[in-house]
Amino acid sequence: MDIAFLITAAAILAGAAGAMAARNVVHCALCGVVSFAGLAVAFLQLRAEFVGFAQLLVYVGAVAILIVVALLLTRNFEAMHEALAFRPWTLGLAIALLVSGAVVSAILGSGLTGRAPSSAPVPAVKEIGDLLMTRYVVALEVVGVLLTVALIGAALVALREDGPAQRAKPGERGPVEGRPED
């Protein structure tokens, strides 16, 4: 087992554990970023260059930012010290341990352990693009529609509840986004 994999795996797992265990919710988000970035490195180690960079761009650049903005908009940075007493938390932990333990034992028991990586070269971006425009073109279009719908839907859902009546007239300074009136 090479050292690069060990470091990456340690970063991914430590980041994930931090994200799930930290009391401060912003720390949760930042630890999550460590995990996401570590996964991007893992993708690079598996020679999926394009996916690794896409992972970094989407998760660190967009999802993480979305999460921290949502944290700040919901005033979570004040209510930082939530106790970990949701449901019997030992039960949740036990279920998670059981699931991952079962999966790990299944992996180790299967015939997959000895398989070596194929020696195929790093896929060129051009190949990915060609496939996206030929074989996967329907999926690509559907994802495009989905993203557009998600964008509009998210904007609509997060708009103030009292609707457009209270929105500032054009020319005036708009309402501070998403901040509830106090």
Binding site: A9, M20, L71, L93, I95
Partner: peptide, 20 residues
């Protein structure tokens, strides 16, 4: 590694109570 990561995520989803 993926199984452990999944387990950690699952534990968090089951035990945390903050939606985000």
């Amino acid at each position: 590694l993926a199984a452990l990561l999944f387990g950690i995520g699952l534990a968090g989803v089951l035990t945390r109570r903050n939606a985000i």
